[in-house]
């Protein structure tokens, strides 16, 4: 985890791609700067932990099972909440996009609530329904709901009418028009909404867990800070980053690749979105 490792790694990593080599070098540079800053600042570890302290805290949290439990709690809360927000966002996006009645009925109300960030809701939710999963579920799905809704709406509104007419002349029922044209055509936009929402929700989750939970990464960070275990706080932060990277690689990108890119609707892009 120090500069000597970095120097040592270079000649052996020729088999990985240039981009990966650069990425690894970037991470190592950050670690190096961190370690150097620890030497320069020279403060007690509970105030400014070194990489070594964080590694030790990580080992301890793994051994006593806390980290695994918290990661599982956070992931589970996240998955259920994002799923709920995604489903509701798609349903209301379709309703508003396809029906003038619903659009007029809900358009302004939804724009109004869009402006009220989830953070503003959490204290109120805690008063109403207390600490725990229901509050987190509402707060996170709230965050996911809006970008999914607005992107679904855009997707629905930009569907070529000729595609809908074409399937109608092939005998599609209203429901079949929805499943065969409207949903697949809006899917790239829904994915964009999910991507944005999933990012917001991740931040929201940590915040909600700080306030309204007794476990999870957010709680780990909050609890670590209030007990001066800053090494644990940093473990929590690094886990956040890793969890997001993992989700991006294992979930979001494969879904995008399997749908959008194969349809030739968007060109495969090399960079991060």
């Amino acid at each position: 985890m120090t500069d000597s490792v970095a120097i040592h790694l270079r000649p052996r990593t020729l088999w990985i791609s240039r981009a990966q080599r650069r990425g690894t070098a970037g991470i190592l540079a950050v670690l190096l700067l961190w370690q150097i800053s620890v030497w320069i600042i020279d403060l007690p570890p509970y105030f400014y932990p070194a990489p070594r302290d964080v590694l030790a805290a990580f080992g301890e949290l793994i051994r006593n099972g806390i980290l695994i439990e918290y990661l599982a709690d956070s992931s589970w809360r996240y998955a259920v909440s994002v799923g709920t927000g995604l489903s509701l966002g798609i349903i209301f996006g379709l309703l508003i996009g396809l029906s003038g009645f619903w659009s007029r009925l809900l358009g302004s109300i939804i724009r109004f609530f869009y402006a009220i960030v989830e953070v503003a809701w959490i204290p109120l939710l805690v008063i109403w329904i207390g600490y725990g999963f229901p509050t987190i579920l509402i707060a996170i799905s709230y965050v996911v709901f809006f970008p999914v809704l607005y992107n679904t709406l855009t997707g629905v509104q930009t569907i070529q009418p000729v595609l809908i007419n074409a399937v109608r002349t092939l005998g599609a029922s209203r429901f079949q028009v929805l499943t065969s044209v409207i949903l697949p055509a809006a899917l790239p936009n829904i994915m964009t909404g999910l991507r944005v929402g999933a990012g917001f929700a991740f931040r929201g989750l940590i915040f909600a867990e700080m306030i309204a939970a007794g476990s999870g990464l957010g709680f780990l960070i909050f609890d670590g800070a209030s007990t001066r275990q800053t090494d644990r706080v940093v473990v929590g932060m690094i886990m956040m980053g890793l969890l997001w990277l993992l989700m991006d690689r294992l979930l979001l990108r494969p879904i995008e690749r399997a749908t959008i890119e194969r349809w030739g609707l968007v060109r495969a892009q090399g960079g991060e979105s």
Binding site: Q160, V162, L163, N165, A166, V167, R168, T169, L170, G171, S180, V181, P184, A185, L187, T259, R262, W263, G264, L265
Partner: peptide, 19 residues
């Protein structure tokens, strides 16, 4: 009164489902 499978249409813009 409404579109139906008994009246097929070929559109200038093909209207094939891209996916």
């Amino acid at each position: 009164t409404k579109p139906g499978a008994d009246r097929g249409v070929v559109f200038q813009e093909y209207a094939l489902l891209p996916w």
